[in-house]
Design a binder for these strands. Sequence first.
DNA 1: CTGTATCCTTAGGGATACTG
DNA 2: CAGTATCCCTAAGGATACAG
Lengths: 144, 144
Amino acid sequence: MTRRAKPPWHGCPTRYAAGIIGDKWCFLLLRDVLLHGKRSYSEFLESPERISTNILANRLAKLEESGLFDRQIDPRKGSRVLYFPTHKARALLPAFLGMMVWSTQFDDQTEAPDSFAATFLEDPNACVAWYENEIDKVDAKISG
Amino acid sequence: MTRRAKPPWHGCPTRYAAGIIGDKWCFLLLRDVLLHGKRSYSEFLESPERISTNILANRLAKLEESGLFDRQIDPRKGSRVLYFPTHKARALLPAFLGMMVWSTQFDDQTEAPDSFAATFLEDPNACVAWYENEIDKVDAKISG
DNA sequence: CTGTATCCTTAGGGATACTG
DNA sequence: CAGTATCCCTAAGGATACAG
């Protein structure tokens, strides 16, 4: 890298990320949407971390306000509400995958799913693209 | 990517990361150590987010317990304590840089530091290596 | 300088009932 | 199904003083 000695160590951009990803519930909701194909209130409630309804509503509002979730009425069933990941949310995929790789490498609890880490490290861009495609498939399926 | 349809969507490894990175203060302390070259209690206290002493002590203990910080007495000055990032912590660099890039792309508040995002996206590995080297330099300087 | 200890306050959040 | 609305309560955390 050609780069002068002082990197982005001034006005550090991590604080913005900390405000969103540094919140346990936002973190997990983003995971659900980006990696688990979840889109609806009830699906979020089913997650093993057992978020309660008031907190869920609060975080959904926060994520929508932050431009990460796109709230939409289900075109097929009016009483259903769906939350789609925006472009801004999708752009977090590389960071999330990075954290997943890290977990599989260092957490004894999570049994490494086959060769996930290796696959990612070998070609991160392809891995991200694969997840992008999964998201597209979920959204396309829902939107009919 | 050759990969069967079901990715790591079982026993999702993000929950472990959520326990550490999903905590605002741990997140910021990791940032300070990995990106800002901070190593000591007083340096952490100086961060703009103004962590209070009891919380700082609590998180330092948590991060040491989790194997991310290596607590050591300053070889030159016995009353000084230093916290070095372990290999496990350093392995979070890619994820952190990913979040920095994301922030510079989407947060209006953080004025993009020149071409940081572009530089990273162009060659992420080189960028990580550069930060690794910065960490090495800080540690070497301190250790004498 | 690196912490403990204490006090005190507030906000986060669980449980639950209720509504359109 | 997708939320609101309470109630309640604990734990997080700010401020400050103190200690080795």
